[in-house]
Write a protein that binds this DNA or RNA. Structure first.
Ligand SMILES: [Mn+2]
Ligand SMILES: [Mn+2]
Ligand SMILES: [Zn+2]
Ligand SMILES: [Zn+2]
Lengths: 169, 169
DNA sequence: ACGAGATTGAGATGCAATATCATTCAGGGG
DNA sequence: CCCCTGAATGATATTGCATCTCAATCTCGT
């Protein structure tokens, strides 16, 4: 899917807030902009950090509240990567069906789509007595090849970060 | 795979601790027993609760430490279900390849195995430049049919619990 | 200008998980 | 059997993230 402009995204957000009788305040706009300016998965606390460094500002409470609203609007989704990490994903606007492959060592994430996998996922879901959602399938793996290519983001040091519980060491 | 007896499991644990020069204390034995007596996924805090109610006892610190050891031994695995929940799974001893299907509404979990899915998972993992691990694939869905049958554990009330963040309401 | 209702933000609170560290324990050498 | 040493434990403090509370502020329609 093509990349919606930030302006279009803000319009969509504004429309959603309006439809709920809510205002699109400058704080909410700032948070929305920050989220959809890049296409990165993020942690709420990270977002707070980033916003604090920027010129605009909003309290932690407002940031969390805005995130919830955006999730309700369908523009943003919560994804989970294990280890108790909670991430939000602004990319479903562009690719509504994408899934995630996560490196168990360094938590590097790669997005992918695969129609055959979608079909199989639906079959299994039904077979087990569930009904499919538009949502989430997640695969774990090891980014060995990415590491060889030196494209593995979280690994400046050469060795993957091991995890003990949720802490990287 | 057949169900290993609790005695066998304790033996395996003891052997692992011994191999690391660690003792298999009564606290560690109590925790291990509690974990492998049933075959339920559990949260660490739940486990603390359960242990407190039982006759034996161990401090929270010891419980968390024992869990880490068991994970290192391969007998126990951390699985993740989204929403920042961290669960541990003692069932990989019996079915080393199983995956999880989770209901987005009520968090009900069903285990399943599917060789075809495993194959496809491996293909995708490789295609994206990762190498497969023995681990985890996770699918989300809705347990509508389970709900109709009244077998959905977490739904005494008739309506699924909605989630706002990690809190059920 | 006024008032109702929405919004914000500082701080308090909750909760899981981890870190600290003084005390206890177990097991081997003398 | 006693002592010593390192392993193990557990009470407590601390951290990190997320949510809650509530008084103050803002917006908009009248
Ligand atoms: Mn994504
Ligand atoms: Mn399982
Ligand atoms: Zn990696
Ligand atoms: Zn359900």
């Amino acid at each position: 899917m093509d990349q919606p402009s930030l302006k279009a995204v803000l319009g969509q957000a504004q429309a959603f807030f309006a439809s709920k009788g809510l205002r699109f305040t400058k704080q909410r706009e700032a948070v929305t902009t920050l989220i959809f300016r890049t296409h990165e998965h993020f942690r709420p606390e990270e977002l707070c950090e980033r916003l604090r460094k920027s010129d605009s500002s909003a309290s932690r409470a407002t940031i969390y509240r805005t995130i919830l609203h955006l999730v309700e609007s369908g523009m943003l989704r919560e994804i989970s990567l294990g280890g108790g990490e909670r991430l939000y994903d602004p990319n479903f606007l562009q690719s509504p069906h994408h899934n995630h492959l996560i490196c168990v060592d360094c938590r590097e994430i790669v997005e992918f789509e695969d129609p055959n996998l979608d079909i199989m996922q639906n079959c299994i879901t039904r077979r087990m007595g569930f009904s499919p959602t538009e949502k989430a399938l997640r695969i774990e793996g090891r980014c060995d090849r990415l590491r060889l290519l030196g494209t593995c983001k979280n690994m400046k040091s050469g060795k993957p970060k091991k995890r003990i519980g949720s802490k990287r060491v």
